[in-house]
Design a protein around this nucleic acid. Sequence first.
DNA 1: CGCGACACTGTAAGCGTTTACACTGCGCCC
DNA 2: GGGCGCAGTGTAAACGCTTACAGTGTCGCG
Lengths: 349, 349
Amino acid sequence: MEGNNNGPRRAATVKDVARAAGVSIASVSRVINGTGPVAQATRRRVTDAIARLHYVPHQGAASLVTRRHGVVGLLLPELHAGMYAKLIRGIEDAARRHGRHLLVCNLTGDAARDAATLTTLTGRVDGLLLMAPHRHEEALAELLPGDVPAVLLNTRADSGRNVLTVDNYGAVMEVMRHLKRCGRRVVAHIAGPAGNHDAEERVRAWRDALATYWPGTEAPFFRGDFEQESGRAAGQAFAASPEPPDAIFAANDLMAAGAMRALADAGLAVPEDVAVVGFDDVPLASLLSPALTTVHVDVESFGRCALERLLRLTGEPALAQERCEPVPSTLVVRESCGSAAAPARARRA
Amino acid sequence: MEGNNNGPRRAATVKDVARAAGVSIASVSRVINGTGPVAQATRRRVTDAIARLHYVPHQGAASLVTRRHGVVGLLLPELHAGMYAKLIRGIEDAARRHGRHLLVCNLTGDAARDAATLTTLTGRVDGLLLMAPHRHEEALAELLPGDVPAVLLNTRADSGRNVLTVDNYGAVMEVMRHLKRCGRRVVAHIAGPAGNHDAEERVRAWRDALATYWPGTEAPFFRGDFEQESGRAAGQAFAASPEPPDAIFAANDLMAAGAMRALADAGLAVPEDVAVVGFDDVPLASLLSPALTTVHVDVESFGRCALERLLRLTGEPALAQERCEPVPSTLVVRESCGSAAAPARARRA
DNA sequence: CGCGACACTGTAAGCGTTTACACTGCGCCC
DNA sequence: GGGCGCAGTGTAAACGCTTACAGTGTCGCG
């Protein structure tokens, strides 16, 4: 190591601070971490020295002896980007409150590479949050060293692991109940991609609701992929069928919007001819015309719950009693399902 | 599987692996890092032992001696969530390709707390990406230790720091040029929040374009906040004015959509009476009716560029020649500006 | 046969922290 | 006044890893 590559200045260490403050490194450490008793005068001298030297502790060295990293990892599959932002927000927010940091990784779908990611991550975190809606990520979870606490997100509950899920089933049931109350007779479904946990749960609930509220009837099913184009295709298919459904429940808002567009293009009126309901409550949902009825999931809370669940696994005492109920998800009734009072808006001629 | 977290089992270390494999810790390290020559047989024994013991290296210990964390930090202000997901995606993707991880932090706006965040982060990263559209974050950047490489995102270019920005100005100019070509006479602007760098740049470009393409004329200005409600308010205000503008450029899609909604409610047709253009190209923009003309910014590329710029700062050799041009941003012409061929869609009666 | 080059391996010295432990004074109570 | 407790401090031993350096043994070539 020739040492000249990026300047001669090495970062300051506790030793430097101790020397500058005229105390021992132990005292410096005590000041920084607030452990043990320190005289006011000493504290002053140390904090001054720290400021003067721009000293920043090397967390790696600290974690070496404390056996804590103060970091939790978050592994995200190639998801529809919608949730990302809020989920991360929720988790990061909770993490900060509990003095942790968040290491975010995207999974690639490549088994070997993702496994490698998992491993390097494991070496620098106290615990792991793994979004695992597909088989792929579940398989990944198998590789987790047993001593790394982990919470799986949106996974089948019957995996042996610690799991946290959104209440897809209940929410969809509510959607269907509402559609029934609105007097709709045939509720088609535009599903998310096969193999996706949320998508499957929504399909399951849709089927069950069908059997419960419309016993003995059939309803059209379209396999989408959470993208708007597939929603459009579904809408076209439904509109072109001899007896179009009078309601559509799409597994997310993007597909719902795509379907609405296709219906409009086909001359079908929403909600008069066809009611449409989505899922997610994306920001623009209320601005579509008609405004989209959808299911709002509090993704930030979900993230927060996930993190606190994880911390509980690592034995965070303050969290012992904080029960973290299944994440709230609520039906947001707007115009597209036709149940709201007819909105007093001017129609375009 | 709870309760076992404070069990007696300590994580395996190089020493354990070395013993299990019957070699020295140096050889283990060499196998793990691919440094120095190792006999095939030895390598086998070591990798076997690693697998058997579920050994995962302690990165903190490693960074202690290598002086590299393999992690870059990303600091995000309280932004409109839209960009988040893609930005993080872009950065994380590039980071993975360069063997780095991503530590994500939200800033709170609280100066003291954010400063603390900055400091703890600094101790565990090789460099920092700081999204700094507001004064607040710029001030934060001042606190950065001089020896921590950092790239500021979407900040005034005249700060002394290393900065990477989206080409707001050029994009808005293109929008305005297009509106001029469409024959619009009065282009109103719905601005983002004051003090936001992007918002200000878009205002600046709007003003300059006004002076260039519509010299001597005035146009309505509305101060929004990037949220749909403010767009709606703006739309209402414009519609209620004695001489409504015949074009509106909103600083983002959410406000544009809000404005479109308000215009429709007021009986004004888009694009016939008023052309509307947004900024961001959010997923649902193409599904609004009429589909929203907007500016598409490749946020993922932006993230990638930012990361590579940062790595270059830390002296990544492979990146020396890779020039990272200003991030592409392109006008996406749809229906809301009235320039596209009239779409052959059925009109609702 | 000797000797250098080479492939491979082991030993040991840190890297920057935290913390157990030992040591000072000092005030206080019997 | 001698012991005790306690606030305040320092010393030194880890923590798990990388790597300079110092060995080994093997081969090829003069």
